[in-house]
Structures are given as structure tokens and as C-alpha cells.
Design a protein around this nucleic acid. Structure first.
Length: 568
RNA sequence: GCGCCGGUAGCUCAAUUGGAUAGAGCGACAGACUACGGAUCUGUAGGUUGUGGGUUCGAGUCCCGCCCGGCGCACCA
């Protein structure tokens, strides 16, 4: 059912594409275009409304290919264009060869009816065809609280996942817990040192350990609740216990903060489980069997350069036990994702990991997976500011701002909005004072205000006894003809396509832009057209439009993980 | 040295992936309801897109060189 659901606007675009393709075939028959011509026909929305409802630059592309100018190629297409039974009223050739299509406004009516009918699921399409996608994001080390970059990755990953779900993918959100290896050893050692400090011993947190306050607090609590039992453990056993205890509690904290953020993962995948089964050593064996490894200097190397990596990588170290490097369990992890049936893996990584990308991709190719099945999105760093002044983020200086503190200070809506506003791959300046500001300087409220304002219109309408739930069948659609009304309807009609395109581009920032545009179109409409008035039919038509706009705003905000308030 | 990301209005960023007159928000300035929320709307000013070349009907976008900023370049994870 969902698979068949494409948007009204998508159907119209498809129809236009088909007609252009038909015209091109005819031109080929007449010998006006070469038969091998097979251009990609893309329908766009022109930058200005006076340029029509839809446009394509295909004639220019053809012109380039057959060495003629775009305008004459456009002329050929127009001459053969069949407009029988089409909402297309007029086709213009403009500028260097654009084809501009002007449609009869009547196409908007079924598009609006669709919004009404689908409500909260308006925006859903079947483009993704149920393809199974696993998005792994945040995956912070369980060695301390989440930071602001984690918060950014959480907003981006969650929104991207929602967008892809909306476009018909089967999406799974996953958090990879690095609860094994060296860092857990160091974490245990750090906690042990803190525990001794609590008991009055004069010891330092070891070199390379974690010095954050949170371990001291944890040590105090541990000492009170099970101090006696701990004293009885032998050193080996104690370390083991402390490592497990610390990881467990830190992960629990991370989970709690993310839930506060409105983010719920489908799975928390443990690296330790992968390691305990020793299954990850299969990866090494597999690569060895494929002849993709060699020994050098006492270590086992992977010929990753065969798959585009800068240099070959060590899989097993030259130490006594031949312990595995990080890449091994990570490859096993990604292999496991494929084995669970996911066809597309999307990893959101921090900027410090981009050197790692080549190696991971090479490894997966070595294991026989297609390179395109893994997509990596680098979520760039966040620079915090307070009224223009940079906030230092040094871990030593104690000025480290955690995700939780950020949420306390600015709230989840503002945080998510700000993180989504920018393209994930560019650096972000986050002004804490601006995000906290309850005024028009803060862009978060602009969109929420539009939603609340609509709710307010309905409260008012109820008081005045206007009909509140007039559907597409009762409304006189022809009354919605003011330019501000038409502009708003066009934007609303574009939502499903917009969601799909944004999802394909992996650019959640464009969702923020879209909903800001909708809010802006609504505010203009509101100023220009009075909704509740003496004319009953007009009031009904405008209430209908307001309701549709509210649905779209609510759906867009929901995709972004931002609340849609009834009042503010 | 090599690689990646970025450099666009005073500030923070867009630009339908090579298209039409480079656009928004904030800030500045000038205006707008005697009825639905002024957290709004309308308008004005503000640009040699870091820089020099190249590709073509057409470049912010692609190619080459240079400059500036950030981040990577482990038998760490």
C-alpha cells in the first residue's frame, strides 16, 4: 500500500517527463535529433514564480550534445510536444533554452486533498522501495558523558533516519558501543585510582586515563554502596568489575540523555559481544584465505592499497599475543550488519575519523561487499560561542560542556534546530546565547510560531462558531486565488518530493530551510488574507488551507525531532 | 609534505548539483492591524563569490596553480 503512494506533484512531473520524452522520440523519427540521443530529463521548480510552475534544462543539455544552441533544441521539442489531456496550459522557451511549463491551477486541488486525507503521514512516498538501511550514529565511547558534537550527530542521524523512513526505506537506528579493548582497561584503571582517592590514598589518575569529574562521583557512590565487597576482590577481579561497572553506567547515562533528546535507538550494539564470541577473527581468516594479507615485521598486514587505501594496514600486531587492531572488530561489525540483511550502511563519523574511511571501505571491499553499500557522512565539529566569544572546550580546563548541559541551557528544540540548520559536513558555530534567546532573533521560534498561530486561528474560529473541519469536498477551492495562497499551496504540494530529495541528498539541513519557507509563506498569507471573516465560504476555504499548512508544519517538525506547540 | 572540509552581504549561512537577475536570517534603515497572536508582515541599503588562469552558449559550482583557516595522516580507539 505504502509502496504505491507517490505524490501528486511527483505524478505530474512524471507526466511532463513522459511528454518530453515523447517529443524527443518524434524528433528522432523525423531525423531532427540523432537516434542515439538519450538525455536525462529533470524537472525543476523555477527560481521565480513568473517563470512558470515547472521547468527543465534538458534542451540545453541536448544542444550541448548535438552542437547546436539550446533555444533551437527547445524549439524542436516544443514543436513535437503533445499536450492532449494535460494540465499544461502553456510552454515557454526562455533564456538560454529553458522550457517553462505553466499549469492550470486545478492541479493543486487533488494535491491539497491528499494532505487532508493523509494527515500525519502526508509526505510518505514509496521511493525507497523498502530497502533495508542501517544508520549508525553517535556511537560515542563509553568513557564519559556525551558532548556537543555527539548532540549534533544525534540530531543529524535521527533526522536523516526519519526522512528516509518517510521516503519508503526500512530504516534501523543503531548505536555501536565500544565496550571492549584498551580504552575499557584505561577506564577501569582511572576509576580504580578515583576509588583509592575517595578512600584517602594519595594516587593520581594514570597517564592516558580519564580525568573527568564523573568518575570521581562514580567512585564515591561505589564506595558507599559496595565498598566492603570491593576490598575483598583480588586486583584482577577488581579491574574487571570496575571496567564493566563504569561502562554500564556511562552507557546508561548516554541512553538517558539521548532519550531526553527524543532519540530512541533500535539497537545498542556491543563490541564486547562481538569480541567475546571471537567471531571477529573470522574476518582475518577470510582476508587471509583470499590472499589479501601478508606478514611483515612480525605483524599481519592487509593489502588495503589494492582497494584504494593510502597504505596497507596492520590487522594483527607484532606483540606476543598478536592482538588485533581496531579495524578488525570494526570490519566484523560491518560484516555483521550486512549479515543481518541491511543493503545500505550509513555511518556518521566525527571529523577525527575521516582518515579512517579509506581503510574501512577497503576492508569491506576485500571481504567482497560493494563499495557503494557503505556511505560515510562526516559530521564536522561544533564551535560553541557566547555572544560572539568562543567557549573553550578543553577537557583539562573543566569548561567542557556536555550534551546534557547544552540541553538544560537551550532546550532540545533549539539544539536540534541549530544542529540541523547547517550542512553536516561544514563546521558549525553555535551561539548559546542566541539559541536561548526567546525572541525573533532566534529562528527556532519562527517555524513554531507559525504552527501555534494556526492553532490560535482555530481556537478563535471555534469561539466564533465557524465550521472547523471542512474537507476538500465541501470547500470552494476556486476561492483560494490570492498569490500568497497559491504560493503556499505550491509549497505544501511539494512536501513529499522535498522529503524524498532531501533524504537522497543526505542533507537534513534542507528540511529546516523548507519548513522555514513554509512558515514564511504562511505568515505572508496570514497578513494578506484574513482567515475568519463574514464570507462563510471564503472562511471555510481559508480554514482548510490553514489546516493543511498546520499538517505540513507538524510533519516537518516531527521529522526534525522538534515539537510543534499549540501555543507559545 | 600528503589527504579531507571550508573561504559567498557587517555576522551566520543558502544557492534545485553546470543554468535564468547569487538568495535567506540576524544586524542597519524606512514603513504596516481600531477584528484571527507584532515571536508577524512590506520595502531599502549591503557582493570583483579568497586569488590567478583554464574548460563552454553559460562557472559560486568542473580542471590547474597560489593564499588563508580548521581537521586528519598509528602495530590508539
Amino acid at each position: 500500500m505504502v509502496d504505491a503512494s507517490y505524490s501528486v506533484l511527483g505524478e505530474i512531473k512524471k507526466d511532463i517527463v513522459a511528454r518530453i520524452a515523447g517529443a524527443i522520440s518524434k524528433a528522432k523519427e523525423k531525423g531532427e535529433f540523432p537516434t542515439e540521443l538519450n538525455p536525462d530529463i529533470r524537472i525543476e521548480t523555477p527560481s521565480r514564480p513568473d517563470l512558470g510552475d515547472f521547468a527543465t534544462g534538458v534542451a540545453m543539455a541536448i544542444g550541448r550534445e548535438i552542437r547546436t544552441d539550446g533555444r533551437s533544441a527547445a524549439g524542436v521539442i516544443v514543436r513535437h510536444l503533445d499536450l492532449e489531456n494535460s494540465p499544461i496550459r502553456q510552454v515557454d522557451i526562455a533564456g538560454p533554452g529553458f522550457l517553462n511549463f505553466f499549469l492550470d491551477k486545478s492541479w493543486l486541488q487533488p494535491a491539497m486533498a491528499r494532505i487532508w486525507a493523509e494527515g500525519p503521514s502526508y509526505g510518505r512516498t514509496g521511493y525507497g522501495k523498502g530497502k533495508k538501511v542501517l544508520i549508525e550514529f553517535v556511537s560515542a565511547n563509553p568513557t564519559g558523558p556525551l558532548n556537543v558534537v555527539n548532540a549534533r550527530a544525534a540530531a543529524v542521524g535521527d533526522c536523516l533516519a526519519s526522512l528516509m523512513q518517510m521516503s519508503g526505506y526500512e530504516v534501523h537506528r543503531e548505536f555501536y558501543v565500544n565496550d571492549a579493548g584498551n580504552q575499557v582497561v584505561r577506564l577501569a584503571a582511572s576509576l580504580e585510582a578515583r576509588l583509592r582517592q575517595v578512600r584517602g590514598e594519595d594516587v593520581e589518575v594514570p597517564e592516558g586515563g580519564y580525568r573527568g569529574e564523573y568518575l570521581l562521583d562514580m567512585a564515591k557512590e561505589l564506595n558507599e554502596t559496595q565498598g566492603e565487597a570491593l576490598l575483598k576482590m583480588d586486583p584482577e577481579e577488581l579491574r574487571e568489575f570496575l571496567g564493566r561497572y563504569a561502562v554500564e553506567h556511562i552507557v546508561e547515562e548516554q541512553r538517558r540523555v539521548l532519550l531526553e533528546y527524543g532519540l530512541k535507538y533500535d539497537t545498542w550494539f556491543s563490541e564486547k559481544r562481538l569480541r567475546d564470541g571471537n567471531a571477529y577473527m573470522q574476518v582475518v581468516e577470510l582476508l587471509r584465505l583470499k590472499g589479501l594479507t601478508y606478514e611483515k615485521d612480525g605483524a599481519l598486514w592487509f593489502k588495503s592499497t589494492m582497494f584504494g587505501d593510502d597504505k596497507d594496514r596492520v590487522l594483527l600486531r607484532s606483540d606476543e599475543k598478536g592482538t588485533a587492531t581496531y579495524i578488525v572488530p570494526d570490519l566484523a561489525y560491518h560484516k555483521n550488519k550486512f549479515e543481518r540483511g541491511y543493503e545500505l550502511l550509513i555511518d556518521l563519523l566525527g571529523p577525527d575519523h575521516h582518515g579512517y574511511l579509506g581503510r574501512l571501505r577497503a576492508g569491506l571491499m576485500g571481504l567482497g561487499y560493494p563499495a557503494e553499500a557503505l556511505e560515510i557522512l562526516i559530521v564536522q565539529m561544533v564551535r560553541l560561542q557566547r555572544s560572539g566569544e568562543a567557549v573553550k572546550m578543553s577537557k583539562r580546563g573543566g569548561e567542557f560542556i556536555t550534551m546534557e548541559e547544552l540541553l538544560e541551557e537551550v532546550g532540545k528544540d533549539a539544539a536540534r534546530f541549530f544542529f540541523l540548520m547547517r550542512s553536516p559536513e561544514s563546521h558549525l558555530d553555535f551561539d548559546l546565547d542566541l539559541a536561548r534567546l526567546q525572541s525573533n532573533e532566534n529562528p527556532v521560534f519562527y517555524v513554531q510560531y507559525a504552527h501555534a498561530r494556526i492553532a490560535s486561528i482555530f481556537r478563535q474560529a471555534r469561539e466564533e462558531g465557524a465550521a472547523l473541519s471542512v474537507g476538500p469536498n465541501e470547500v470552494d477551492f476556486s476561492l483560494l486565488k490570492d498569490p500568497s495562497e497559491v504560493a503556499l499551496m505550491k509549497l505544501l504540494a511539494a512536501f513529499p518530493e522535498e522529503v524524498h530529495e532531501i533524504a537522497e541528498a543526505r542533507e537534513p539541513n534542507r528540511l529546516i530551510r523548507y519548513m522555514t519557507d513554509v512558515a514564511s509563506a504562511f505568515h505572508s498569507f496570514y497578513t494578506k488574507c484574513r482567515v475568519i471573516g463574514d464570507d462563510k465560504s471564503l472562511t471555510e476555504a481559508r480554514l482548510y488551507l490553514a489546516r493543511l499548512c498546520q499538517i505540513v508544519l507538524a510533519n516537518a517538525l516531527r521529522l526534525a525531532g522538534i515539537s510543534a506547540p499549540e501555543s507559545m
